[in-house]
Amino acid sequence: MSLRWPEIVPPRAALAFAAGVVALAVAPWVLGLSPYSHNLVTLAFLMVSGALAWNWMGGFVGQVSFGHAAMFGLGGFVAARVLLAAPELPAPLAWIAGGLVAGLFALGAHPTLRLRGPYFSIATIGVGEAARLVFTYWEDFTGGSSGLSLPIDSDMKYRLYWWGLGLMALVAAASFLIRRSTLGLQLLAIKADVDAAADVGVSATFYQDLVFCLSGAVVGVSGGLWASYFSFIEPNDMFGFDRSIGFVLMTVIGGVGTVFGPVLGAIVFVLLRQFLLASYPQLYLGLYGLLLIFIILFEPLGLTGLLLRLSRPLRRWADRPAAAPSP
């Protein structure tokens, strides 16, 4: 058997993607990013990864989770514990351990996946909040409300830029492949009509478990990187409801169910958050609320939908006949 170029990946898209990753990889040297921008971009990488993974569940399968903070926090604290117990261990191993535990936790949520629509969403709020309380109480593991400090040096913090970029590139490529593959087709079928999907042989239970597990693992890994980056974590923040909401908002703002909507949404979310927290902290939540209302009512595909709408007349203008008489 010889290796073949997968049919579902257009070569042009692959090239553009590779170019983008390389550009981001060399950006700190070429642009001489300030520590502030370096920070912001690293955080954006982690948030983009999380939003993309949330979208596998919320966008492709159509099950809106308000509880992804549980996996984010778990991944963070497991990674932290591994690094504290064995500081000489390479950090990526600790992040992977965090991701595995988070993925297993997501598998444990199997019974809630029988629920559809609002019932699933509400159950995830319950799971998420219960996890927050239990892990905050479990001081031996999370350090309780005084949190944990990680043995991370500033060099590692600087290098996390590239680790974050790597994670994001991996998750973005996976999103694209899932969406284009027969797996994605089946997820969309489940989203449209679970019963009809079962009638043509799609096992909704299996695919939901699979996707929730993968999504939880990725969010767990990004939680581990986050923990390393801040070198101090606290359960009420890592497991907080606001973090779960963050994943929802990023994806919905960017365009739920699309491949690159979450990327767009997470970037806007991180920038907006930074700007709002600095200048108008009192308007922080309300603005997201208004954005959410606006998107649901007028542009269900979020910023991606808006861009598509704007690009249509532009493209028409670009494609106009060259000999068209000017008015």
Binding site: T182, L185, Q186, L188, A189, A197, V200, G201, V202
Partner: peptide
């Protein structure tokens, strides 16, 4: 695509 989803499950 509707039919392809089904074709995946011919066992």
């Amino acid at each position: 695509e509707n039919v392809t989803v089904a074709a995946l499950h011919a066992g």
